[in-house]
Design a protein around this nucleic acid. Structure first.
Length: 110
DNA sequence: GTGCTGACACAGG
DNA sequence: ACCTGTGCCAGCA
């Protein structure tokens, strides 16, 4: 089928949309889930269209966002009860506990 | 066409 | 925990 340029962004947003509250994925996870593109591509999509979805549920591999978004993400995490770890630079998401394991077969529908 | 930039990841020091 | 360099790929000037 026609794989238009806009499809990638749509698929990224679609995945992000499925992340349950209190759970998270890294940019790399999303890219691997899609089977195409890479962390930077996912990041680019989020920077452009992230406002339309729960952007805070997609974070860097170290469990943090870029400094500019940290404070805003924290509010969401507190509300959703996302597992957090306190650290020197502030906080970071406990990826070991919060990383979302997508149910097998979920991607088969595409 | 060329080069810089970016909501990244990973290895080194 | 910090900073730096390298690999990655797409968008933009």
């Amino acid at each position: 089928m026609t794989t238009g340029p806009g499809d990638y962004a749509d698929r990224v947003l679609d995945v992000v949309d499925r992340i349950p509250p209190g759970r998270v994925l890294t940019y790399g996870d999303v890219a691997e889930l899609l089977g195409s593109g890479g962390p930077r591509q996912v990041g680019r999509v989020m920077a452009t269209d992230g406002a339309a979805v729960a952007w805070w549920r997609v974070l860097r591999a170290d469990g943090r966002h870029i400094e500019r978004l940290q404070s805003r993400a924290l509010e969401h995490f507190r509300v959703e009860g996302t597992p957090l770890l306190s650290g020197p630079g502030g906080f970071r998401v406990d990826l070991r506990a919060a990383r979302w394991m997508p149910p097998p077969g979920l991607l088969g529908t595409w």
